[in-house]
Amino acid sequence: MTHISNIPANFKASGVSITGLRKSYGSNEVLKGIDLEVKPGEVVCLIGPSGSGKSTLLRCVNLLEKPNEGKIHVGGFETTDPDVDLDKMRQNVGMVFQQFNLFPHLTVTQNCTVAQTKVLKRPAAQAKEVAQKNLDRVGLGAFGDRYPDELSGGQQQRVAIARALSMDPTLMLFDEPTSALDPETVGEVLAIMRSLAKAGMTMLVVTHEMSFAKEVADRVIFMDGGVVVEEGIAQDVIGNPQQPRTKDFLKRVLDPTHVEIDT
């Protein structure tokens, strides 16, 4: 089990507010009017079947995808305003990808310092210090000189989290951060996310880890077919779902060996 050292003082927090969000790829409407609220300091898990639009929704929040309609507020920014400084907004929003997307030509430490020095213009020494602090936090303080391809999947994802934290984000987005991992390394990544949540980080997490969602999330949102089908307190949505589609989905996820295929 990974040892997670010194849980830090509380984070500065930004909320997210989404109204009437629509997104299409050509004629394929993927998000069909989403309303969603994440309060500062809140942890919200987004669950739903493959292709339901979870990643698209998450990527709209920091505008990696451009919404067709609707409004999104993140912290003090209205990200859908064409005049907003997207780079400035993204400095405050950390993103962790399913495939890690570490920079393979840079060392672990450089992965954590490059945006600090080039974007935030921090002096190199300070950036290194911040990187070290965050690598310590994810239990990889001794791995700074390695290259990403010299690390396991779980370690790479932890570096990706440290890289995002090094920008002092007020909001963290996670897109299935454990889906590409070997089963035995899933736990170490979830442990770090749990500690972040405890420390007060605002988090919007797409995940298939139902026990994590149940334990850590303040709220769970179930999406299907580009709409929010059900949302509420984690224990309610996962423990006692009301909508048939939610029940069906959870049955398949929680007990995949007993799924009946109707023909």
């Binding site: 990696l64 400095q91 990808f97 920079f103 490059v114 974007v119």
Partner: peptide
């Protein structure tokens, strides 16, 4: 994913 990761850290496109 490389440029997406860079952009999501706040780097402008040219950077």
């Amino acid at each position: 994913g490389q440029s997406e990761a860079a952009r999501s850290l706040g780097m402008p496109a040219w950077r």
